[in-house]
Design a protein around this nucleic acid. Structure first.
Lengths: 145, 145
DNA sequence: AAATAATATATGAAATTTCATGGAAATCAG
DNA sequence: CTGATTTCCATGAAATTTCATATATTATTT
């Protein structure tokens, strides 16, 4: 009652904006037969050669046990591979995307870029760039450690 | 490979910023013995007299069946009340916070305001206000009609 | 007004997520 | 070095979330 929780509170505005903007695209993800967490993993791995489980959990904003079990399922589906050799630290597991995963991700990566372009166009490209810059700064300010 | 998913993609920047900023406060929520969804419900209801289940689901960014079951638990815990009389539409259920819920929410509402103030202070108040304004615009642009 | 469609919430079964903890490997203190 | 601590990932059991659908009510057609 003393706080306009819904409309003036920065954490809520961030959450709502994220929910709305991503939600639009997430419909396309599900239409493509992937869950949102699966999409996040594939999109992240599409970029890089390999990634440790911990780093992937961090990037995909997922808790580690949740990710481990998601990776179990995605491995069973042939979307990703996990191996324990080759890491500098033998506790780590290295995850990489498979060719099959890449094929599934490819059209969505295109659609994601299109969706972002639409959002930015509607918003105004320069304002959009400025928002991105602002968000990067906010993120840097709150990065752990 | 063609897309800098992690660092240049607006939906991801929004999600990450939201995750980091809210994550800090969510630790206090759990320390107070509430789950994040419970906190969202209480914070929303603290402001208003009553709210329909649907509106509450929308505001708290929760799917309706998820919210219904959360409300079952919160009702059992005496944090909220749900009734079907009094609504203009008899399909609706009206949810309100109880005195007990208010007591549990109160200290967290204070901490939430403090946390936001810290975030804004570190970020720069004017930049913070500008970010809020920008987010409101982005939200308005994507609100489901 | 009857029939049909749409909306608000609830519910059961299945799937996922979470918490707490385990084991293995690396790092640190003495 | 040795033992204590910490870090990384996995796992079982419990809790939550989700999907599909049911039920009740309201809105729209015809």
């Amino acid at each position: 009652m003393t706080m306009p929780f819904v409309d003036g509170y920065l954490p809520y505005l961030l959450a709502r904006a994220s929910h709305l903007v991503s939600g639009e695209f997430h419909r396309k993800v599900e239409a493509a037969g992937l869950s949102v967490p699966e999409w996040r993993v594939l999109a992240t791995l599409a970029d890089r050669d390999v990634c440790t489980v911990g780093a992937l959990a961090d990037i995909t904003l997922t808790k580690q046990p949740t990710l481990t079990k998601l990776l179990d399922r995605m491995t069973a589906d042939g979307l990703v591979e996990r191996r324990r050799e080759g890491a500098p630290d033998r506790r780590q597991a290295l995850v990489s995307i498979t060719e099959r995963g890449r094929e599934r991700a490819r059209p969505l990566l295109v659609q994601a870029a299109e969706h972002e372009a639409q959002v930015l166009a509607a918003f105004g490209a320069s304002q959009g760039d400025q928002l991105k810059e602002t968000l990067r700064r906010l993120i840097a300010l709150h990065a752990r450690r």
